[in-house]
């Protein structure tokens, strides 16, 4: 098994009375796509933000590439790429200019066209973010998370609000990132996304991790416990119909 690149140990976060993150522990191995699943309000984002240095850690410890996140936030920031939920970019700069500027924030040169190519946006290099479709915006914010050639990429609900084609397109981008040797940690509340994309998932509920294993193993365990789906298994889903009718591999979403 590849070495552990992220180790989260007994992480806690409270907002007043509410315990948002309750003794969360997990570890992520190099070149893994690791998913954190859970309903809204389960504590996924809070967990991610503590790891990303965005939010102070109440108690617990996060080691990232051998660095204590609380003690060395700057070095950690150099090693991670982050895509935030509902964050946006400067207006009035085009994609190329934005990527160059973000490169400067890390003090490193950037090849904007190559980065845009990685997320299939090379032909929108001169566009501004508000001229992109939802799926393109999400892919761009993934590109912006890659400017510093990070070891670890954090994607917070990257496909929320996207149509099935745009979502599949982004899955392809995420797999490509992993194939380049990076590790990906993402949150989602789409189960089929986790099943399709993630090597391993942690399921969170009310601030706690209730399961942590590869998707197929979780499904196998459930079936082994005698679980039977209420409905008869169909060989195709409505999503399959939709994709079949509207085209599978659309580049422009």
């Amino acid at each position: 098994m590849p070495p552990v690149i992220l180790a989260v140990n007994n992480l806690c976060k409270r907002y007043g009375e509410l315990v948002a993150v309750d003794r969360v522990s997990f570890s992520v191995h190099r070149q893994e796509i690791f998913g954190i699943l859970g309903p809204n309000g389960a504590g996924k984002t809070s967990t991610l933000e503590m790891i990303e240095t965005l939010r102070p850690i109440d108690t617990g410890m996060v080691m990232l590439d051998g660095l204590d996140v609380q003690k060395h936030p700057r070095q950690v920031q150099q090693r991670i790429g982050v895509q935030l939920q509902a964050a946006s970019f400067f207006e009035k700069l085009n994609l190329t200019e934005l990527l160059l500027l973000f490169g400067e924030l890390y003090g490193r040169p950037v090849d904007p066209l190559k980065l845009l190519g990685e997320v299939d946006l090379q032909d929108r290099a001169k566009a501004q973010v508000d001229q992109l479709s939802g799926g393109q915006q999400q892919r761009f914010s993934v590109a912006a998370a890659l400017v510093n050639d990070p070891l670890l990429v954090f994607l917070d609900e990257p496909t929320t609000g996207l149509d099935p084609q745009a979502r599949r397109h982004l899955w392809g981008v995420i797999r490509r990132i992993r194939s380049e040797g990076k590790t990906v940690v993402l949150t989602t509340h789409y189960m089929e996304e986790a099943e399709e994309l993630c090597d391993r998932v942690a399921i969170m509920d009310r601030g706690r991790i209730v399961a942590d294993a590869p998707p197929q193993k979780l499904i196998g365990d459930l079936l082994a416990s005698g679980f039977k789906q209420a409905r008869v298994e169909r060989l195709a889903s409505l999503e399959d119909v939709f994709l079949h009718l509207t085209g599978h591999a659309l580049q422009e979403d």
Binding site: I80, A87, A144
Partner: peptide
């Protein structure tokens, strides 16, 4: 709009 938030995960 979250621009400052996005900046704060960089070393800037």
């Amino acid at each position: 709009r979250g621009v400052l938030r996005r900046l704060s995960v960089t070393p800037m």
